[in-house]
């Protein structure tokens, strides 16, 4: 606690200093996640273009199991500093978590090119190649940031989720997200109804009609091109968007998720789907 007290005092003396990075990490390691989060967000407000600040924030979010936001933060860190190994390892961890071994290994390889002597990266790659552990072996709170080797732990519990790779790192990547083409054919994601029945194909078939009608309605009413359709249902909310002119993305969430938040989630999923489609 002495370290935390000392760092807090330093930060109080000079709120603009970068000591918040060490304080936030110290708090995170002690498990004081709410305090760590406050330190990180305050630091980010003062240093929004500092990759380390986004990296710290992402680590804390990961500890809080908010993988969707963590992905965004690491993604931002890599945009600011493409060789940021912490962020690359973090992204590798999230890809690994949803079973996208290819992306996970690519990010680890990128980190290794920057830091070829970092043994934790080799260790993580080896463990990843050596076989993933099942869901029962997953630790309750994975903590990738302190070492890429921890990637091996949460792992390919999601081995059957190839379709979810489109939405790697996004909250609920393996359910409630559906990407289809203009003819109603599934490109990625999956949907289940309340009873657990797979309704992917049925919904995909209807969505093509919804999209055509939305486009026609917007056009004929002089509203221009449509860019989103949100709906509150009795048992859940949905948002429909089109990442490209020929593709449709549906996000389905429980009723408690407000439409505004759903739209933000859909926006992120749209970006990811667009990138994924471009790579095809």
């Amino acid at each position: 606690m002495d370290e935390i007290r000392a760092l807090s005092a330093q930060l109080a003396q000079d709120p603009q200093s970068l000591v918040f990075l060490r304080l936030g990490e110290a708090l995170r390691r002690k498990g004081q996640l709410d305090a760590a989060l406050r330190v990180a967000t305050n630091g980010l407000e003062r240093h929004p273009h500092l990759a380390d600040a986004h990296d710290l924030y992402a680590r804390i979010l990961t500890d809080k199991h908010d993988y969707e936001k963590a992905f965004d933060e690491w993604d931002m860190a890599v945009r600011i500093a493409p060789h940021h190994t912490g962020a690359l390892k973090g992204l590798a961890f999230l890809y690994f978590k949803i079973g996208d071994l290819q992306q996970a290994e690519a990010h680890l390889a990128a980190a290794k090119r920057v830091e070829p002597d970092d043994p934790t990266i080799d260790q993580a790659i080896e463990m990843m190649r050596g076989g993933a552990k099942g869901p029962a072996e997953q630790p309750a709170a994975p903590s990738p940031p302190s070492g890429a080797a921890s990637i091996a732990a949460p792992a390919a519990a999601t081995g059957g989720l190839d379709e979810a790779r489109v939405f790697a790192g996004l909250e609920g990547a393996n359910e409630g997200l559906l990407l289809i083409d203009g003819s109603g054919r599934v490109l990625g994601g999956a949907l289940k109804d309340g009873g657990g029945t797979d309704v992917t194909d049925a919904v995909a078939a209807y969505l093509a009609g919804v999209s055509q009608e939305a486009a026609r309605t917007a056009k004929l009413l002089g509203l221009g091109a449509w860019n989103g359709l949100s709906a509150e249902g009795q048992h859940g909310n949905v948002h429909l968007a089109h990442p490209t002119p020929d593709a449709l993305l549906l996000v389905v969430r429980e009723r408690g998720i407000p439409l505004g938040r759903l739209a933000i989630l859909a926006q992120r999923a749209t970006l990811m789907a667009r990138r994924w489609l471009e790579r095809q």
Partner: peptide, 19 residues
């Protein structure tokens, strides 16, 4: 079909207006 039931509100957002 998606199991979300009948809609209670929906909103079509377009470039120059909304329904």
């Amino acid at each position: 079909a998606s199991g979300t039931g009948r809609s209670v509100f929906w909103h079509l957002q377009a470039e120059q207006g909304a329904l």
